[in-house]
Design a binder for these strands. Structure first.
Lengths: 290, 290
DNA sequence: CGAACTGTTGATAACTATCAAGTGGCGTGG
DNA sequence: CCACGCCACTTGATAGTTATCAACAGTTCG
Protein backbone atom coordinates (compact mmCIF):
# COMPACT_ATOMS: atom_id res chain seq x y z
CA UNK A 1 0.00 0.00 0.00
CA UNK A 2 1.35 3.37 -0.96
CA UNK A 3 0.17 6.84 -0.10
CA UNK A 4 0.32 9.10 -3.06
CA UNK A 5 -0.67 12.22 -1.20
CA UNK A 6 1.54 15.25 -0.93
CA UNK A 7 4.30 14.72 -3.35
CA UNK A 8 7.15 17.13 -3.30
CA UNK A 9 5.99 19.32 -6.14
CA UNK A 10 2.91 21.51 -5.93
CA UNK A 11 1.46 18.15 -6.78
CA UNK A 12 -2.14 19.10 -7.33
CA UNK A 13 -1.79 18.58 -11.07
CA UNK A 14 -0.78 15.06 -10.10
CA UNK A 15 2.95 15.32 -10.79
CA UNK A 16 2.52 14.95 -14.50
CA UNK A 17 4.76 16.99 -16.72
CA UNK A 18 7.34 18.67 -14.51
CA UNK A 19 10.10 16.14 -14.24
CA UNK A 20 13.59 16.27 -12.86
CA UNK A 21 15.18 17.65 -16.00
CA UNK A 22 13.41 20.95 -16.29
CA UNK A 23 13.08 21.53 -12.56
CA UNK A 24 15.44 24.44 -12.39
CA UNK A 25 13.15 26.34 -14.70
CA UNK A 26 9.87 25.15 -13.29
CA UNK A 27 7.62 26.91 -10.86
CA UNK A 28 7.21 30.54 -10.04
CA UNK A 29 10.40 32.47 -9.66
CA UNK A 30 9.19 35.57 -7.87
CA UNK A 31 6.63 36.40 -5.19
CA UNK A 32 5.32 39.69 -3.96
CA UNK A 33 4.77 40.82 -0.41
CA UNK A 34 1.15 39.80 -0.32
CA UNK A 35 1.87 36.24 -1.32
CA UNK A 36 4.64 36.15 1.19
CA UNK A 37 2.35 37.16 4.05
CA UNK A 38 -0.27 34.66 3.00
CA UNK A 39 2.34 31.96 2.98
CA UNK A 40 3.49 32.90 6.46
CA UNK A 41 -0.08 32.90 7.69
CA UNK A 42 0.04 36.48 8.93
CA UNK A 43 -2.22 39.44 8.12
CA UNK A 44 -1.33 40.90 4.76
CA UNK A 45 0.74 44.03 4.77
CA UNK A 46 -1.43 46.94 3.76
CA UNK A 47 1.28 48.88 1.94
CA UNK A 48 0.64 50.18 -1.54
CA UNK A 49 3.61 49.17 -3.64
CA UNK A 50 2.77 45.54 -3.25
CA UNK A 51 3.38 44.57 -6.79
CA UNK A 52 6.71 46.30 -6.96
CA UNK A 53 8.46 44.36 -4.27
CA UNK A 54 9.41 41.02 -5.57
CA UNK A 55 11.23 38.25 -3.81
CA UNK A 56 13.28 35.72 -5.64
CA UNK A 57 12.70 32.01 -5.46
CA UNK A 58 15.45 29.42 -5.47
CA UNK A 59 15.22 25.71 -6.04
CA UNK A 60 17.11 23.03 -4.19
CA UNK A 61 17.21 19.35 -4.91
CA UNK A 62 16.87 16.53 -2.47
CA UNK A 63 19.92 16.29 -0.29
CA UNK A 64 21.28 19.73 -1.04
CA UNK A 65 22.30 21.98 1.79
CA UNK A 66 20.76 25.43 2.01
CA UNK A 67 23.15 26.77 4.62
CA UNK A 68 25.69 25.38 7.06
CA UNK A 69 26.63 26.11 10.61
CA UNK A 70 28.99 29.04 10.90
CA UNK A 71 28.31 30.30 7.42
CA UNK A 72 27.83 34.08 7.37
CA UNK A 73 24.19 34.94 7.72
CA UNK A 74 22.52 37.20 5.24
CA UNK A 75 19.17 35.82 4.25
CA UNK A 76 16.08 34.25 5.72
CA UNK A 77 14.22 31.53 3.89
CA UNK A 78 10.53 30.83 3.50
CA UNK A 79 9.41 27.44 2.25
CA UNK A 80 7.16 27.68 -0.76
CA UNK A 81 7.09 23.97 -1.40
CA UNK A 82 9.04 20.92 -0.36
CA UNK A 83 10.38 19.52 2.88
CA UNK A 84 13.57 20.18 4.78
CA UNK A 85 15.27 19.53 8.06
CA UNK A 86 17.39 21.80 10.21
CA UNK A 87 20.08 20.22 12.32
CA UNK A 88 22.66 21.02 14.92
CA UNK A 89 25.95 19.15 14.75
CA UNK A 90 27.90 18.51 17.91
CA UNK A 91 31.63 18.19 18.35
CA UNK A 92 31.59 14.52 17.44
CA UNK A 93 29.75 15.06 14.21
CA UNK A 94 26.42 13.80 15.42
CA UNK A 95 23.35 15.42 14.05
CA UNK A 96 20.48 16.63 16.17
CA UNK A 97 17.39 17.41 14.16
CA UNK A 98 15.73 20.62 15.29
CA UNK A 99 12.82 21.03 12.93
CA UNK A 100 11.27 19.89 9.70
CA UNK A 101 10.37 23.09 7.87
CA UNK A 102 7.66 22.81 5.26
CA UNK A 103 5.35 25.08 3.27
CA UNK A 104 4.86 28.38 5.02
CA UNK A 105 7.70 27.95 7.49
CA UNK A 106 10.49 30.43 8.02
CA UNK A 107 14.01 29.39 8.79
CA UNK A 108 17.45 30.88 9.08
CA UNK A 109 16.33 33.09 11.95
CA UNK A 110 18.95 31.63 14.27
CA UNK A 111 21.60 33.45 12.27
CA UNK A 112 20.42 36.94 13.14
CA UNK A 113 22.05 37.18 16.53
CA UNK A 114 25.60 36.10 15.79
CA UNK A 115 25.43 36.95 12.12
CA UNK A 116 26.25 33.34 11.38
CA UNK A 117 23.82 30.50 10.98
CA UNK A 118 23.63 28.41 14.12
CA UNK A 119 22.17 25.41 12.34
CA UNK A 120 22.32 23.60 9.06
CA UNK A 121 19.37 23.27 6.68
CA UNK A 122 19.07 20.36 4.27
CA UNK A 123 16.43 19.63 1.64
CA UNK A 124 14.60 16.34 2.23
CA UNK A 125 12.87 16.69 -1.10
CA UNK A 126 13.12 19.03 -4.01
CA UNK A 127 12.27 22.44 -2.64
CA UNK A 128 11.19 25.82 -3.80
CA UNK A 129 12.30 28.49 -1.35
CA UNK A 130 11.72 32.20 -1.23
CA UNK A 131 14.74 34.29 -0.38
CA UNK A 132 14.31 37.11 2.09
CA UNK A 133 17.59 39.01 2.23
CA UNK A 134 17.85 40.33 5.76
CA UNK A 135 19.12 43.77 4.75
CA UNK A 136 16.29 44.17 2.32
CA UNK A 137 13.87 43.03 4.95
CA UNK A 138 15.18 45.52 7.49
CA UNK A 139 14.93 48.30 4.95
CA UNK A 140 11.37 47.29 4.27
CA UNK A 141 10.57 47.69 7.92
CA UNK A 142 10.97 51.44 7.54
CA UNK A 143 8.15 51.77 5.06
CA UNK A 144 5.98 48.82 6.00
CA UNK A 145 5.61 49.01 9.72
CA UNK A 146 3.24 46.08 9.84
CA UNK A 147 5.92 43.92 8.35
CA UNK A 148 7.98 44.47 11.45
CA UNK A 149 5.14 43.30 13.66
CA UNK A 150 4.64 40.36 11.39
CA UNK A 151 8.23 39.30 11.84
CA UNK A 152 7.96 39.58 15.61
CA UNK A 153 4.87 37.46 15.40
CA UNK A 154 6.51 34.78 13.32
CA UNK A 155 9.56 34.67 15.56
CA UNK A 156 7.36 34.53 18.59
CA UNK A 157 5.47 31.64 17.08
CA UNK A 158 8.73 29.88 16.45
CA UNK A 159 9.77 30.46 20.04
CA UNK A 160 6.54 28.97 21.32
CA UNK A 161 7.07 25.98 19.09
CA UNK A 162 10.53 25.44 20.54
CA UNK A 163 9.07 25.77 24.02
CA UNK A 164 6.55 23.06 23.45
CA UNK A 165 9.32 20.96 21.99
CA UNK A 166 11.36 21.38 25.16
CA UNK A 167 8.33 20.56 27.22
CA UNK A 168 7.70 17.45 25.19
CA UNK A 169 11.26 16.20 25.42
CA UNK A 170 11.34 16.91 29.11
CA UNK A 171 8.07 15.35 30.14
CA UNK A 172 6.65 12.85 27.70
CA UNK A 173 7.27 9.16 27.14
CA UNK A 174 8.48 7.74 23.86
CA UNK A 175 5.01 6.68 22.77
CA UNK A 176 3.57 10.07 23.58
CA UNK A 177 6.29 11.83 21.63
CA UNK A 178 5.76 9.73 18.55
CA UNK A 179 1.99 10.11 18.87
CA UNK A 180 2.25 13.87 19.09
CA UNK A 181 4.67 13.94 16.22
CA UNK A 182 2.20 12.12 14.02
CA UNK A 183 -0.67 14.34 15.07
CA UNK A 184 1.25 17.51 14.40
CA UNK A 185 2.39 16.25 11.04
CA UNK A 186 -1.19 15.37 10.23
CA UNK A 187 -2.40 18.82 11.20
CA UNK A 188 0.39 20.42 9.28
CA UNK A 189 -0.54 18.51 6.16
CA UNK A 190 -4.16 19.48 6.60
CA UNK A 191 -3.18 23.15 6.74
CA UNK A 192 -1.26 22.69 3.54
CA UNK A 193 -4.28 21.26 1.80
CA UNK A 194 -3.10 17.67 1.78
CA UNK A 195 -4.80 14.72 3.33
CA UNK A 196 -4.43 14.57 7.07
CA UNK A 197 -5.32 10.90 7.12
CA UNK A 198 -2.84 9.47 4.68
CA UNK A 199 0.61 10.83 4.03
CA UNK A 200 4.20 9.98 3.41
CA UNK A 201 6.90 10.68 5.90
CA UNK A 202 9.65 12.64 4.30
CA UNK A 203 12.25 11.78 6.88
CA UNK A 204 13.88 8.56 8.00
CA UNK A 205 13.24 6.84 11.31
CA UNK A 206 16.65 8.03 12.26
CA UNK A 207 15.77 11.65 11.69
CA UNK A 208 12.49 11.28 13.52
CA UNK A 209 14.32 9.70 16.42
CA UNK A 210 16.84 12.47 16.52
CA UNK A 211 14.07 15.04 16.44
CA UNK A 212 12.20 13.34 19.27
CA UNK A 213 15.20 12.42 21.37
CA UNK A 214 14.79 8.69 20.71
CA UNK A 215 16.63 6.00 18.80
CA UNK A 216 15.43 4.85 15.43
CA UNK A 217 14.61 1.44 16.89
CA UNK A 218 12.30 2.95 19.46
CA UNK A 219 10.57 4.98 16.79
CA UNK A 220 10.14 1.92 14.63
CA UNK A 221 8.84 -0.17 17.49
CA UNK A 222 6.40 2.51 18.55
CA UNK A 223 5.03 2.88 15.04
CA UNK A 224 4.64 -0.89 14.84
CA UNK A 225 2.80 -0.90 18.15
CA UNK A 226 0.46 1.89 17.04
CA UNK A 227 -0.13 -0.11 13.92
CA UNK A 228 -1.02 -3.25 15.83
CA UNK A 229 -3.52 -1.56 18.10
CA UNK A 230 -5.11 0.12 15.13
CA UNK A 231 -4.19 3.73 15.81
CA UNK A 232 -2.40 3.97 12.49
CA UNK A 233 -1.35 1.92 9.50
CA UNK A 234 2.32 1.82 8.64
CA UNK A 235 4.07 0.75 5.52
CA UNK A 236 7.56 2.08 5.34
CA UNK A 237 7.21 5.82 4.82
CA UNK A 238 3.48 5.67 4.25
CA UNK A 239 1.38 6.51 7.30
CA UNK A 240 -2.35 6.25 7.63
CA UNK A 241 -4.00 7.87 10.63
CA UNK A 242 -6.91 5.81 11.93
CA UNK A 243 -7.57 7.22 15.39
CA UNK A 244 -6.41 10.79 15.80
CA UNK A 245 -8.05 11.19 19.17
CA UNK A 246 -6.24 8.21 20.60
CA UNK A 247 -2.96 9.64 19.38
CA UNK A 248 -3.81 13.10 20.56
CA UNK A 249 -4.69 12.08 24.10
CA UNK A 250 -1.94 9.53 24.53
CA UNK A 251 0.18 10.63 27.43
CA UNK A 252 1.94 9.35 30.43
CA UNK A 253 2.41 10.21 34.02
CA UNK A 254 4.97 13.00 33.76
CA UNK A 255 8.31 12.24 35.38
CA UNK A 256 8.53 15.58 37.09
CA UNK A 257 5.59 16.58 39.23
CA UNK A 258 6.54 20.13 40.01
CA UNK A 259 3.18 21.11 41.38
CA UNK A 260 2.75 22.56 44.86
CA UNK A 261 3.79 25.99 46.07
CA UNK A 262 2.79 27.41 42.76
CA UNK A 263 1.97 31.03 43.38
CA UNK A 264 3.28 32.64 46.50
CA UNK A 265 5.60 30.57 48.58
CA UNK A 266 4.07 31.67 51.83
CA UNK A 267 1.22 29.91 53.55
CA UNK A 268 -1.74 28.36 51.86
CA UNK A 269 -4.45 26.33 53.53
CA UNK A 270 -2.63 23.06 53.21
CA UNK A 271 -2.57 19.71 51.50
CA UNK A 272 -3.24 20.81 47.99
CA UNK A 273 -2.10 17.76 46.24
CA UNK A 274 -1.18 16.75 42.78
CA UNK A 275 -4.09 16.09 40.51
CA UNK A 276 -2.88 12.61 39.62
CA UNK A 277 -5.13 12.71 36.58
CA UNK A 278 -7.08 9.81 35.15
CA UNK A 279 -4.61 7.23 34.02
CA UNK A 280 -3.85 6.57 30.38
CA UNK A 281 -2.27 3.51 28.86
CA UNK A 282 1.19 3.90 30.31
CA UNK A 283 3.23 0.86 29.49
CA UNK A 284 3.83 -1.21 26.41
CA UNK A 285 1.77 -4.03 27.77
CA UNK A 286 -1.17 -1.77 28.37
CA UNK A 287 -0.75 -0.33 24.94
CA UNK A 288 -0.64 -3.73 23.35
CA UNK A 289 -3.66 -5.08 25.17
CA UNK A 290 -5.84 -2.07 24.50
CA UNK B 1 29.45 26.24 54.61
CA UNK B 2 27.45 28.96 53.00
CA UNK B 3 28.07 30.94 49.86
CA UNK B 4 27.21 34.54 50.32
CA UNK B 5 27.77 35.52 46.73
CA UNK B 6 25.09 37.00 44.56
CA UNK B 7 22.27 37.84 46.84
CA UNK B 8 19.04 38.95 45.34
CA UNK B 9 19.56 42.66 45.75
CA UNK B 10 22.19 44.59 43.82
CA UNK B 11 24.10 43.13 46.71
CA UNK B 12 27.42 44.83 46.28
CA UNK B 13 26.76 47.07 49.29
CA UNK B 14 26.38 43.81 51.18
CA UNK B 15 22.63 43.96 51.65
CA UNK B 16 22.80 46.36 54.53
CA UNK B 17 20.10 48.94 54.77
CA UNK B 18 17.50 48.06 52.20
CA UNK B 19 15.26 45.63 53.97
CA UNK B 20 11.95 44.12 53.16
CA UNK B 21 9.91 46.99 54.52
CA UNK B 22 11.08 49.75 52.23
CA UNK B 23 11.61 47.49 49.23
CA UNK B 24 8.83 48.94 47.18
CA UNK B 25 10.56 52.28 47.26
CA UNK B 26 14.10 51.06 46.93
CA UNK B 27 16.19 50.93 43.81
CA UNK B 28 15.97 52.87 40.66
CA UNK B 29 12.49 53.30 39.32
CA UNK B 30 13.20 54.35 35.77
CA UNK B 31 15.74 53.50 33.07
CA UNK B 32 16.51 55.13 29.77
CA UNK B 33 17.12 53.49 26.43
CA UNK B 34 20.86 53.40 26.80
CA UNK B 35 20.74 51.55 30.08
CA UNK B 36 18.24 49.19 28.59
CA UNK B 37 20.51 48.29 25.70
CA UNK B 38 23.46 47.81 27.99
CA UNK B 39 21.43 45.49 30.13
CA UNK B 40 20.37 43.45 27.11
CA UNK B 41 23.98 43.25 25.93
CA UNK B 42 23.28 44.77 22.56
CA UNK B 43 24.87 47.78 20.85
CA UNK B 44 23.47 51.00 22.26
CA UNK B 45 20.85 52.75 20.21
CA UNK B 46 22.36 55.87 18.68
CA UNK B 47 19.22 57.95 18.83
CA UNK B 48 19.34 61.42 20.28
CA UNK B 49 16.45 61.70 22.70
CA UNK B 50 17.97 59.09 24.95
CA UNK B 51 17.27 60.82 28.16
CA UNK B 52 13.68 61.49 27.31
CA UNK B 53 12.54 57.95 26.94
CA UNK B 54 12.12 56.39 30.30
CA UNK B 55 11.00 52.92 31.18
CA UNK B 56 9.34 52.12 34.42
CA UNK B 57 10.62 49.56 36.88
CA UNK B 58 8.43 47.29 38.93
CA UNK B 59 9.31 45.19 41.93
CA UNK B 60 8.12 41.71 42.69
CA UNK B 61 8.66 39.70 45.81
CA UNK B 62 9.71 36.10 46.05
CA UNK B 63 6.93 33.82 44.92
CA UNK B 64 4.91 36.45 43.14
CA UNK B 65 3.69 35.78 39.65
CA UNK B 66 4.55 38.28 36.94
CA UNK B 67 2.15 36.90 34.36
CA UNK B 68 0.12 33.75 33.82
CA UNK B 69 -0.68 31.57 30.89
CA UNK B 70 -3.52 32.92 28.81
CA UNK B 71 -3.35 36.37 30.31
CA UNK B 72 -3.61 39.09 27.63
CA UNK B 73 -0.19 40.10 26.48
CA UNK B 74 0.81 43.72 26.50
CA UNK B 75 4.29 44.08 27.89
CA UNK B 76 7.73 42.55 27.70
CA UNK B 77 9.94 42.34 30.75
CA UNK B 78 13.65 42.82 31.23
CA UNK B 79 15.30 41.60 34.40
CA UNK B 80 17.23 44.33 36.17
CA UNK B 81 17.95 42.25 39.23
CA UNK B 82 16.71 39.07 40.81
CA UNK B 83 15.91 35.56 39.64
CA UNK B 84 12.79 34.09 38.10
CA UNK B 85 11.50 31.01 36.39
CA UNK B 86 9.15 30.64 33.46
CA UNK B 87 6.97 27.57 33.30
CA UNK B 88 4.50 25.80 31.11
CA UNK B 89 1.62 24.03 32.81
CA UNK B 90 0.10 21.00 31.18
CA UNK B 91 -3.48 19.77 31.37
CA UNK B 92 -2.82 17.90 34.60
CA UNK B 93 -1.38 20.89 36.37
CA UNK B 94 2.22 19.80 36.13
CA UNK B 95 4.82 22.45 35.71
CA UNK B 96 7.56 22.33 33.15
CA UNK B 97 10.29 24.85 33.77
CA UNK B 98 11.38 26.55 30.57
CA UNK B 99 13.98 29.05 31.71
CA UNK B 100 15.48 30.84 34.66
CA UNK B 101 15.61 34.49 33.60
CA UNK B 102 18.13 36.66 35.42
CA UNK B 103 19.80 40.02 35.03
CA UNK B 104 19.77 41.14 31.42
CA UNK B 105 17.27 38.56 30.23
CA UNK B 106 14.11 39.38 28.34
CA UNK B 107 10.92 37.45 28.81
CA UNK B 108 7.27 37.62 27.82
CA UNK B 109 8.17 37.30 24.16
CA UNK B 110 6.07 34.19 23.79
CA UNK B 111 2.97 36.35 24.11
CA UNK B 112 3.53 38.32 20.93
CA UNK B 113 2.16 35.80 18.51
CA UNK B 114 -1.17 34.91 20.08
CA UNK B 115 -1.46 38.11 22.06
CA UNK B 116 -1.62 36.02 25.21
CA UNK B 117 1.26 34.83 27.30
CA UNK B 118 2.09 31.21 26.54
CA UNK B 119 3.94 30.71 29.79
CA UNK B 120 3.90 31.76 33.40
CA UNK B 121 6.67 33.77 35.05
CA UNK B 122 7.33 33.54 38.79
CA UNK B 123 9.86 35.41 40.93
CA UNK B 124 12.31 33.08 42.67
CA UNK B 125 13.71 36.00 44.63
CA UNK B 126 12.81 39.60 45.05
CA UNK B 127 13.08 41.10 41.61
CA UNK B 128 13.41 44.44 39.93
CA UNK B 129 11.99 44.31 36.43
CA UNK B 130 11.86 46.89 33.67
CA UNK B 131 8.58 47.15 31.85
CA UNK B 132 8.64 47.40 28.10
CA UNK B 133 5.07 47.99 26.92
CA UNK B 134 4.83 46.35 23.53
CA UNK B 135 2.87 49.17 21.93
CA UNK B 136 5.37 51.69 23.11
CA UNK B 137 8.15 49.52 21.86
CA UNK B 138 6.58 49.17 18.42
CA UNK B 139 6.11 52.91 18.23
CA UNK B 140 9.74 53.37 19.13
CA UNK B 141 10.71 51.19 16.23
CA UNK B 142 9.59 53.96 13.88
CA UNK B 143 12.08 56.45 15.16
CA UNK B 144 14.85 54.19 16.41
CA UNK B 145 15.46 51.76 13.63
CA UNK B 146 18.35 50.12 15.42
CA UNK B 147 16.03 49.20 18.23
CA UNK B 148 14.15 47.00 15.83
CA UNK B 149 17.32 45.17 14.85
CA UNK B 150 18.21 44.86 18.49
CA UNK B 151 14.94 43.14 19.21
CA UNK B 152 15.44 40.73 16.35
CA UNK B 153 18.83 40.01 17.73
CA UNK B 154 17.57 39.33 21.23
CA UNK B 155 14.78 37.12 19.97
CA UNK B 156 17.20 35.27 17.75
CA UNK B 157 19.48 34.73 20.72
CA UNK B 158 16.58 33.36 22.65
CA UNK B 159 15.73 31.03 19.81
CA UNK B 160 19.28 29.72 19.71
CA UNK B 161 19.13 29.14 23.44
CA UNK B 162 15.97 27.10 23.07
CA UNK B 163 17.60 25.15 20.28
CA UNK B 164 20.54 24.18 22.40
CA UNK B 165 18.11 23.24 25.12
CA UNK B 166 16.28 20.92 22.76
CA UNK B 167 19.56 19.47 21.64
CA UNK B 168 20.61 18.89 25.22
CA UNK B 169 17.37 17.20 26.21
CA UNK B 170 17.45 15.06 23.12
CA UNK B 171 21.01 13.89 23.24
CA UNK B 172 22.69 14.16 26.62
CA UNK B 173 22.72 11.92 29.65
CA UNK B 174 21.58 13.03 33.06
CA UNK B 175 25.10 13.73 34.29
CA UNK B 176 25.92 15.73 31.20
CA UNK B 177 22.78 17.82 31.56
CA UNK B 178 23.46 18.65 35.16
CA UNK B 179 27.10 19.40 34.37
CA UNK B 180 26.17 21.76 31.57
CA UNK B 181 23.56 23.39 33.74
CA UNK B 182 26.15 24.16 36.38
CA UNK B 183 28.63 25.47 33.84
CA UNK B 184 26.10 27.75 32.21
CA UNK B 185 24.97 29.05 35.57
CA UNK B 186 28.57 29.68 36.47
CA UNK B 187 29.19 31.59 33.25
CA UNK B 188 26.00 33.52 33.69
CA UNK B 189 27.04 34.60 37.15
CA UNK B 190 30.44 35.61 35.86
CA UNK B 191 28.80 37.84 33.25
CA UNK B 192 26.77 39.43 35.98
CA UNK B 193 29.86 40.22 37.97
CA UNK B 194 29.40 37.58 40.61
CA UNK B 195 31.72 34.76 41.48
CA UNK B 196 31.66 31.95 38.98
CA UNK B 197 33.21 29.58 41.46
CA UNK B 198 30.88 29.88 44.40
CA UNK B 199 27.22 30.60 44.16
CA UNK B 200 23.80 29.81 45.50
CA UNK B 201 21.21 28.03 43.47
CA UNK B 202 18.04 30.02 43.45
CA UNK B 203 15.85 27.12 42.46
CA UNK B 204 14.95 23.83 44.08
CA UNK B 205 16.14 20.42 42.90
CA UNK B 206 12.64 19.93 41.68
CA UNK B 207 12.79 22.98 39.45
CA UNK B 208 16.21 22.04 38.15
CA UNK B 209 14.92 18.58 37.38
CA UNK B 210 11.93 19.94 35.55
CA UNK B 211 14.17 22.25 33.56
CA UNK B 212 16.53 19.43 32.61
CA UNK B 213 13.92 16.77 32.04
CA UNK B 214 14.98 14.77 35.10
CA UNK B 215 13.54 13.94 38.49
CA UNK B 216 14.66 15.76 41.59
CA UNK B 217 16.21 12.55 42.89
CA UNK B 218 18.39 12.20 39.84
CA UNK B 219 19.51 15.79 40.15
CA UNK B 220 20.33 15.30 43.80
CA UNK B 221 22.22 12.10 43.15
CA UNK B 222 24.18 13.62 40.32
CA UNK B 223 25.20 16.59 42.42
CA UNK B 224 26.26 14.23 45.18
CA UNK B 225 28.31 12.23 42.69
CA UNK B 226 29.99 15.33 41.32
CA UNK B 227 30.73 16.28 44.87
CA UNK B 228 32.33 12.95 45.67
CA UNK B 229 34.62 12.96 42.70
CA UNK B 230 35.63 16.50 43.46
CA UNK B 231 34.14 18.32 40.51
CA UNK B 232 32.10 20.51 42.82
CA UNK B 233 31.22 21.03 46.45
CA UNK B 234 27.59 20.90 47.41
CA UNK B 235 25.85 22.03 50.51
CA UNK B 236 22.17 22.43 49.95
CA UNK B 237 21.76 25.44 47.68
CA UNK B 238 25.39 26.42 47.89
CA UNK B 239 27.52 25.20 44.99
CA UNK B 240 31.27 25.48 44.64
CA UNK B 241 32.78 24.79 41.25
CA UNK B 242 36.11 22.98 41.56
CA UNK B 243 36.74 21.65 38.08
CA UNK B 244 34.98 23.57 35.37
CA UNK B 245 36.76 21.76 32.60
CA UNK B 246 35.66 18.38 33.84
CA UNK B 247 32.09 19.62 33.94
CA UNK B 248 32.36 21.31 30.60
CA UNK B 249 33.67 18.26 28.78
CA UNK B 250 31.51 15.69 30.49
CA UNK B 251 29.45 13.99 27.87
CA UNK B 252 28.21 10.67 26.82
CA UNK B 253 27.84 8.61 23.74
CA UNK B 254 24.85 10.27 22.13
CA UNK B 255 21.83 8.01 21.77
CA UNK B 256 21.12 9.07 18.23
CA UNK B 257 23.95 8.81 15.74
CA UNK B 258 22.37 10.52 12.78
CA UNK B 259 25.58 10.81 10.82
CA UNK B 260 25.87 9.45 7.31
CA UNK B 261 24.28 10.70 4.09
CA UNK B 262 24.80 14.21 5.25
CA UNK B 263 25.04 16.31 2.16
CA UNK B 264 23.80 14.90 -1.09
CA UNK B 265 22.01 11.63 -0.90
CA UNK B 266 23.42 10.30 -4.11
CA UNK B 267 26.72 8.55 -4.56
CA UNK B 268 29.80 9.12 -2.48
CA UNK B 269 32.96 7.02 -2.49
CA UNK B 270 31.78 4.67 0.19
CA UNK B 271 32.22 3.56 3.76
CA UNK B 272 32.28 6.94 5.41
CA UNK B 273 31.59 5.88 8.91
CA UNK B 274 30.56 7.41 12.13
CA UNK B 275 33.28 9.17 14.03
CA UNK B 276 32.66 7.17 17.19
CA UNK B 277 34.66 9.76 19.11
CA UNK B 278 37.08 9.08 21.93
CA UNK B 279 35.13 7.75 24.86
CA UNK B 280 34.36 9.81 27.92
CA UNK B 281 33.35 8.58 31.35
CA UNK B 282 30.02 7.09 30.41
CA UNK B 283 28.50 5.31 33.35
CA UNK B 284 28.02 6.02 36.99
CA UNK B 285 30.67 3.51 37.91
CA UNK B 286 33.19 5.16 35.68
CA UNK B 287 32.22 8.49 37.11
CA UNK B 288 32.64 7.27 40.63
CA UNK B 289 35.97 5.63 40.09
CA UNK B 290 37.51 8.55 38.27
C1' DC C 1 8.86 24.17 68.33
C1' DG C 2 6.21 21.96 64.96
C1' DA C 3 4.50 21.76 60.19
C1' DA C 4 5.74 21.81 55.68
C1' DC C 5 9.05 21.91 52.47
C1' DT C 6 13.64 20.66 50.62
C1' DG C 7 17.18 17.58 50.02
C1' DT C 8 19.55 12.91 50.54
C1' DT C 9 19.92 8.15 49.92
C1' DG C 10 18.54 3.27 49.08
C1' DA C 11 15.93 -0.50 46.75
C1' DT C 12 13.44 -1.70 42.88
C1' DA C 13 11.20 -1.48 38.48
C1' DA C 14 10.34 0.47 34.06
C1' DC C 15 11.65 2.47 29.95
C1' DT C 16 14.53 2.94 26.36
C1' DA C 17 19.20 2.31 24.40
C1' DT C 18 22.32 -0.88 22.64
C1' DC C 19 23.71 -4.84 20.08
C1' DA C 20 22.59 -8.03 16.61
C1' DA C 21 20.51 -10.30 12.74
C1' DG C 22 17.63 -10.33 8.93
C1' DT C 23 14.34 -8.38 5.29
C1' DG C 24 13.20 -5.45 1.60
C1' DG C 25 13.75 -1.44 -1.46
C1' DC C 26 16.30 1.10 -4.69
C1' DG C 27 20.03 2.82 -7.42
C1' DT C 28 24.18 1.67 -9.94
C1' DG C 29 26.82 -0.89 -12.83
C1' DG C 30 27.75 -5.11 -15.13
C1' DC D 1 17.68 -6.30 -17.45
C1' DC D 2 19.27 -8.28 -13.50
C1' DA D 3 22.55 -8.61 -9.65
C1' DC D 4 24.99 -6.43 -6.18
C1' DG D 5 25.48 -3.42 -2.50
C1' DC D 6 23.93 0.05 0.37
C1' DC D 7 20.58 1.95 3.12
C1' DA D 8 16.23 2.06 5.59
C1' DC D 9 13.48 -0.48 8.39
C1' DT D 10 11.94 -4.26 11.51
C1' DT D 11 12.29 -7.23 15.30
C1' DG D 12 14.44 -9.73 19.19
C1' DA D 13 17.47 -10.15 23.32
C1' DT D 14 19.83 -7.77 26.76
C1' DA D 15 21.76 -4.17 29.52
C1' DG D 16 21.85 0.32 31.46
C1' DT D 17 20.04 4.65 32.81
C1' DT D 18 16.78 6.91 35.16
C1' DA D 19 12.12 6.98 37.32
C1' DT D 20 9.52 5.50 41.11
C1' DC D 21 8.60 4.43 45.84
C1' DA D 22 9.97 5.04 50.44
C1' DA D 23 12.16 6.57 54.61
C1' DC D 24 14.66 9.98 56.85
C1' DA D 25 17.42 14.29 57.95
C1' DG D 26 17.99 19.20 57.67
C1' DT D 27 15.85 23.86 57.04
C1' DT D 28 12.66 27.49 57.24
C1' DC D 29 9.21 30.15 59.08
C1' DG D 30 5.31 31.34 61.52
Amino acid sequence: MQAFENRTEPALPLRATNLEAGWQRQGKLWSNLKELCALLRIPAVSGMADEDLLFQHVQFKTGQRIHTIGQPFDTLYIVHSGFLKTVLIDEYGNEQVLSFPMKGDLFGVDGIHTRRYASEAVALSNCDLILLPFKKFIALGRTHIELEQAMYSVMSRELVREQSMVSMLGALSAEARVARFLVSLSERFAEMGYSSRLFNLRMTRHEIGSYLGLTLETVSRTLSAFNEIGYITVDQKSIGIRDVEALRTLRRLPPSTTRGRQTSRKARPAAEDVIEAGAEPATWDQLMSA
